[in-house]
Design a protein around this nucleic acid. Sequence first.
DNA 1: GGAGACGGGTCGTCGCGCGATATATATCGG
DNA 2: CCGATATATATCGCGCGACGACCCGTCTCC
Lengths: 110, 110
Amino acid sequence: MRITEQSYLVLLALAEEPRHGYGIVQAVRDLSDDEVRLGAGTLYGVLDRLVAAGWAEASGEEVVDGRLRRYYRLTGAGREALAAHTDRLTALAARARRLVAPRPATGGAW
Amino acid sequence: MRITEQSYLVLLALAEEPRHGYGIVQAVRDLSDDEVRLGAGTLYGVLDRLVAAGWAEASGEEVVDGRLRRYYRLTGAGREALAAHTDRLTALAARARRLVAPRPATGGAW
DNA sequence: GGAGACGGGTCGTCGCGCGATATATATCGG
DNA sequence: CCGATATATATCGCGCGACGACCCGTCTCC
């Protein structure tokens, strides 16, 4: 499957710990500095695709204050995919930084 | 407009220097370690949206070996948008690295 | 009793990715 | 000479993914 910014953020949110839907929305909002706010449609669409890809799975339910929470967790494959994409992102960001900001912020010798 | 990985890579390719369509495809392929290969449909779709957003503009034509080259360059606004998104990407990648990698080094062959 | 946070989910629209296709020139191997 | 490959442009249509609108509820606070 295609890894978009939204699906990547969901993977990242689940990497920390298993979360329920609403918790994922908040975690993504937090991870992205309040710039990515998942709507319900986006969330469940992403979740369905992650489960179909074998990268996430349902992880039990819980009732808190009369409200149902449905949890999801990463699979091993999901964790691998996340790590791989994170490597690519890191490399890309480093490359981009060189192209975008010609002056070295770290005061390097080059 | 929405900044996707594809449109981001095109912005990055144009940040280095003005390029023509085919040159952008090759630059993106290079920037992404041969993992993102823009098809014609993707390229011109992205280009249209970048121009419509005021982030890129046509920059003259040239004929080389009997083939027409149509050049595009970044605008000031495009450069700002690119820098802003690069900052977000860098921050996200750093955050992700903390969550994802208990292992010390990147260990790649690059 | 109403507003707003918390919690689940579906549906329809539309933007975007992308392959297929069309058109044309230069190069190189067989 | 012919076909394959690379360079170069652009359009079209399909399908997937993002996202808001909307639906159902509970609990808390005012």
